[in-house]
Design a binder for these strands. Structure first.
Length: 748
DNA sequence: GGGGGCTATGGGGGG
DNA sequence: CATAGCCCCC
C-alpha cells in the first residue's frame, strides 16, 4: 500500500476510513480523484470484493480516468468494480430488471431530440398551441418533475403545480406528462431521466426482492461530484444504503462551491441532508490546492466569497508566486478572438507551452466559432468539444434509427425517422393516419403498420417498408453488428441516396456513414470496451446503449496535441497550464437568464469559480464591448465577476482595463458595426519618468506609457485608492479611469 | 406527396 | 444568426 504515502494527512484519513458514512469536501485541485481512486484501491486491498463496490460519477470521462488510475494500483480486478455514470450504471441494472417493471430488456434510450419530437407530436395531437407548449419548456418541466420524484399521477394531484402551470399558460402540462409517459412505455423507451426515475421505481416497488439484492450486492458506495446530484439521484442512493441495519458504507465527494447543475435539478440541500440522514457522518475537508499558483487561488477565493451559502473552507496553496492574471479588454468579439490567439502564440513562445496545455473556455458553445477561425489562420491545432457531436449528425442518426428499430420495433421515434428516409412515398398525411390508428388502439406504430388497415395511397409502400425491416430483423440473428449495419446501409438504399448528392456536404455525409461503420466494427472487435458494470457484451442492444450515453468529450484521442476549446461546464474536473476564460460580459457570463435572480447569479459565480480554477499557471480573462448575437450587434459592460477579483491579482498592463471594467456605464453611443481597430504599437519612451502621485491633479497634461498623451479631467478617492479620470488623445474611449497607485504617469 | 423559399422566433449548460 | 414551421407550387 505504497500509495498511501502519496497522500497528505486528510487525504489519507478519507481514503482509509472505509466503514460508515463519510463526506469529503474537496476544493479545486485538492486531489479529489486521487482520494476516490485510492479509496477504491484500499477497499480492494482490504479484501472487499471489487464487484461489491459501486462508484458513481457524472461523466464517462471521470469514470474512465478513475478506472485507469485504479488499475495502475490493483490491476485487472478494476474491471469488476461497478464504476460508471449514474446513467450507465442504472441503465445496466434496468437491462437486467426491466421486465419486472413492464419494460423490455431491449428498451430504447430516447435522446433529447427523440423526446422533443415525441412531445411535439403529443402537443399536435391534443390540438394545443405549439407556441405556448414549446417542446423545450415541456421537456424541462417534465424532467424537473421526474428529478423530484413526481409521477404523472402525483403531478395531476398537485394543486400547486397545476396552478403554476395555469398561470404560465401551460395548464395542460400534466396531461402531456401523462401521455408522454404512456407513449414512452408503449414504445419501450426511456429518456435520460427515466434511467434514474425507473431505477428508483424498481427499487421502491421492490418486485422479487430486487431491493435487497442490490443492497447486499453493493457493500460500498462512492459518489463523485455529490454537489451535482439531484433529489432523485440522492433518493436512489438512500434506497441503496440508508435502511435499518445498513452499514452505511458510503463516501460522498464534492464541493459545494463547484455546484453548477442546479438548472437540471441538482441541489446543495443534498449535502446538508446528507449530514442529517447519515448519523455519525465524518467530514474531511481537502483545502490544499495542488494545482494553481497563489494569484489564481486567491482570485478564486475572492470571487466565491460573494456567495453567502457555502460550506466554510479555506483553499490555500504552497505553490510559489507565479504570473499575475491577465485581462484582455477587446472592442469587439472578433478583436477578442484575435488577441486571445495572439496571446496564445506569445505564451507558447515565451513559456514553451504545448497546445495540449492550453484551453479556451466559454460560457456558451456558440462562442467557439471566432476562436476557431483565428486559430486556423494561425495554424494552431485545436479541438472543439461539445456542440454537435458525431452521433447527433443527421446521417448518423438515420442509420442508428434503423438499428434501433431492429433492436426494438416499438421505438416509434426511430420508425418515424426512417419510414420515409430515403423517400419511399410515405408522407406526413399517411404517417398521420398511421399515428391516429396507433393511438386509437393503444399500439405502437410498428404494430399499426402490421395490421390490415388501409392507410390510403401509401399503404403498399408502408407494407414494403415493414417487410424490409422484418428482413433486417431476420438478418440480425447470427450475424455481428458490423455486418448487420453494413447490410442495412446498403439494403435500405441510404447509401444510394447519399451518393446522389455530389456536393461537398454530401461527400462528407458519406464519409460520416463510413466512419460510423468503422466505429461499429471497432466496438465489436475491441476487447477493452467490455466492462462488467456497464457493457456486458457486444450485442446490438449493448452498442446502442453505449452510444446513447457517451458524448464526444469521452472520445478523446490519447496524446493529441491540440488546444482545447470547450464550455466551462464541460471543463469541470480538468486542468490546463494556461487557461483563457473569454466572453466575460454581463448577459453572457453571467447569462442574461441567470441575472434575474440571486440564485441564478450565484450559480454563474460558481461556474466562474470552476472556470478560473482550471488554470495551473497562467490565467487570462477577456471581454468584448460589442459582440454579434442573433445577427445583431449587442453591447454589454464587463462581467460583474471581474470586479470581484482584487485588482492586485491582475498584472500591471491589465489593471487599467480591470478598473475600467468596474467603472460606470457609458451612455449609449452605439459602436459602428465591425469597426476596424488599428492597434498602435506601444512605443516605449526612453525619457519616460513616472511622476509622483501628488503631482497628478485635475487639469494636468500627462503621458502614459501605453495610452500616450492625455488630460486629467478629475481625481477622486484618497490615498491608495485615488483614481484619475483621464481623456487620452488616441483612445477609442472617451475617458479612462486609472488607479494612481499603479499607474505610470508623467506630468508634462 | 415532395421540395423550395420565406418568415417568425428563440436565444444555456449536459447525460 | 440558425432553425422550425408554413405556404405555395410542381
Amino acid at each position: 500500500m505504497q500509495y498511501l504515502n502519496e497522500l497528505n494527512d486528510i487525504q489519507r484519513q478519507a481514503v482509509t476510513d472505509i466503514n460508515g458514512p463519510s463526506l469529503v469536501v474537496a476544493g479545486p485541485g485538492s486531489g479529489k480523484t486521487r482520494v476516490l481512486t485510492y479509496r477504491i484501491a484500499y477497499l480492494i486491498d482490504s479484501k472487499i470484493p471489487p464487484y461489491q463496490i459501486l462508484a458513481l460519477t457524472f461523466t464517462n470521462k471521470a469514470a474512465k480516468e478513475m478506472k485507469e488510475r485504479i488499475s495502475k494500483v490493483v490491476g485487472s480486478s478494476v474491471n469488476k468494480v461497478w464504476a460508471g455514470t449514474f446513467h450507465s450504471i442504472f441503465a445496466r441494472i434496468l437491462r437486467f430488471e426491466a421486465d419486472k417493471i413492464g419494460y423490455p430488456s431491449s428498451f430504447t434510450i430516447y435522446d433529447t431530440d427523440d423526446t422533443k419530437s415525441l412531445l411535439n407530436a403529443i402537443v399536435k395531437e391534443m390540438g394545443l398551441d405549439p407556441k405556448a407548449y414549446g417542446a423545450g419548456t415541456l421537456y424541462n418541466r417534465i424532467s424537473s418533475a421526474k428529478s423530484n420524484l413526481i409521477s404523472p399521477t402525483a403531478y395531476s394531484n398537485n394543486a400547486e403545480l397545476l396552478e403554476k402551470d395555469r398561470a404560465k399558460g401551460v395548464g395542460q402540462l400534466h396531461h402531456i406528462y401523462k401521455k408522454y409517459s404512456e407513449r414512452c412505455r408503449r414504445s419501450g423507451a426511456m429518456d435520460f431521466d427515466d434511467l434514474l426515475f425507473q431505477t428508483y421505481r424498481l427499487l421502491h416497488q421492490n418486485p422479487d426482492g430486487v431491493l435487497e439484492k442490490y443492497r447486499s450486492k453493493f457493500s460500498h458506495l462512492l459518489v463523485d461530484e455529490f454537489q451535482d446530484t439531484n433529489y432523485l439521484q440522492y433518493s436512489i442512493i438512500k434506497k441503496l444504503c440508508l435502511y435499518d441495519g445498513s452499514p452505511q458504507n458510503i463516501c460522498a465527494v464534492g464541493d459545494d462551491a463547484q455546484s453548477i447543475y442546479a438548472f437540471r435539478g441538482a441541489t446543495i440541500d443534498n449535502i446538508l441532508d446528507f449530514e442529517k440522514d447519515f448519523k455519525g457522518l465524518k467530514t474531511y475537508k481537502l483545502e490544499q490546492n495542488y494545482r494553481s499558483t497563489p494569484y489564481i487561488v486567491n482570485a478564486a477565493n475572492s470571487v466565491i466569497t460573494h456567495n453567502k451559502k457555502q460550506i466554510k473552507k479555506v483553499i490555500w496553496t504552497s505553490h510559489e508566486q507565479g504570473e499575475k492574471i491577465r485581462l484582455v479588454k477587446a472592442i469587439s468579439d472578433t478583436e477578442e478572438a484575435r488577441r486571445v490567439v495572439d496571446l496564445i502564440q506569445e505564451q507558447k513562445n515565451r513559456y514553451h507551452l504545448s497546445n495540449s496545455e492550453i484551453a479556451i473556455l466559454y460560457r456558451t458553445n456558440a462562442q467557439s466559432r471566432l476562436f476557431e477561425e483565428y486559430l486556423r489562420r494561425s495554424n494552431l491545432a485545436y479541438r472543439i468539444y461539445g456542440g454537435l457531436s458525431f452521433y447527433q449528425r443527421k446521417e448518423v442518426k438515420d442509420i442508428l434509427a434503423y438499428l434501433r428499430l431492429i433492436n426494438n420495433q416499438n421505438d416509434d421515434e426511430a420508425l418515424k425517422r426512417i419510414i420515409n428516409y430515403p423517400r419511399r412515398g410515405i408522407g406526413n398525411t399517411s404517417l398521420d393516419k398511421v399515428s391516429a390508428f396507433a393511438n386509437a388502439n393503444g399500439i405502437s406504430l410498428w404494430e399499426a403498420i402490421g395490421s390490415d388497415t388501409d392507410f390510403g395511397r401509401s399503404t403498399n409502400s408502408i407494407k414494403k417498408f415493414r417487410k424490409m425491416i422484418e428482413g433486417f430483423i431476420q438478418k440480425e440473428t447470427g450475424v455481428g453488428i458490423y455486418d448487420l449495419a453494413t447490410y442495412v446501409v446498403n439494403k435500405s438504399e441510404v447509401i444510394d441516396d447519399l451518393k446522389k448528392d455530389g456536393s461537398h456536404e454530401g461527400q462528407s455525409r458519406l464519409e460520416n456513414v463510413q466512419a460510423l461503420l468503422d466505429a461499429i466494427k471497432d466496438f465489436e472487435e475491441n476487447d477493452e470496451i467490455i466492462d462488467e458494470a456497464t457493457l456486458p457484451d457486444k450485442s446490438l442492444e449493448s452498442y446502442l446503449q453505449n452510444i446513447a450515453l457517451v458524448s464526444d468529450l469521452d472520445n478523446e484521442e490519447e496524446g493529441s496535441e491540440t488546444i482545447t476549446l470547450m464550455s466551462v461546464h464541460s471543463a469541470k474536473g480538468l486542468e490546463f497550464k494556461s487557461v483563457f476564460v473569454v466572453g466575460l460580459e454581463e448577459n453572457l457570463f453571467p447569462s442574461a437568464m441567470a441575472i434575474k435572480s440571486r440564485e441564478g447569479v450565484d450559480e454563474e459565480r460558481r461556474l466562474f469559480y470552476v472556470a478560473i480554477t482550471r488554470a495551473e499557471q497562467y490565467l487570462t480573462l477577456s471581454f468584448a464591448k460589442t459582440r454579434y448575437r442573433y445577427g445583431k450587434i449587442s453591447e454589454d459592460t464587463a462581467s460583474r465577476f471581474l470586479k470581484e477579483i482584487d485588482i492586485e491579482y491582475f498584472d500591471d498592463s491589465s489593471q487599467s482595463a480591470a478598473l475600467e471594467s468596474s467603472g460606470v456605464q457609458r451612455s449609449g453611443v452605439r459602436m459602428a458595426p465591425m469597426r476596424k481597430v488599428l492597434r498602435k504599437p506601444i512605443k516605449v519612451n526612453p525619457n519616460f519618468k513616472a511622476s509622483s502621485i501628488s503631482d497628478i491633479i485635475e487639469g494636468a497634461e500627462v503621458v502614459h506609457q501605453r495610452f500616450g498623451k492625455g488630460k486629467v479631467l478629475k481625481v477622486d478617492g484618497d490615498n491608495d485608492s485615488r483614481v484619475a479620470t483621464i481623456a487620452f488623445d488616441n483612445s477609442f474611449d472617451e475617458t479612462k479611469r486609472i488607479l494612481l497607485k499603479y499607474a505610470k504617469l508623467q506630468v508634462l
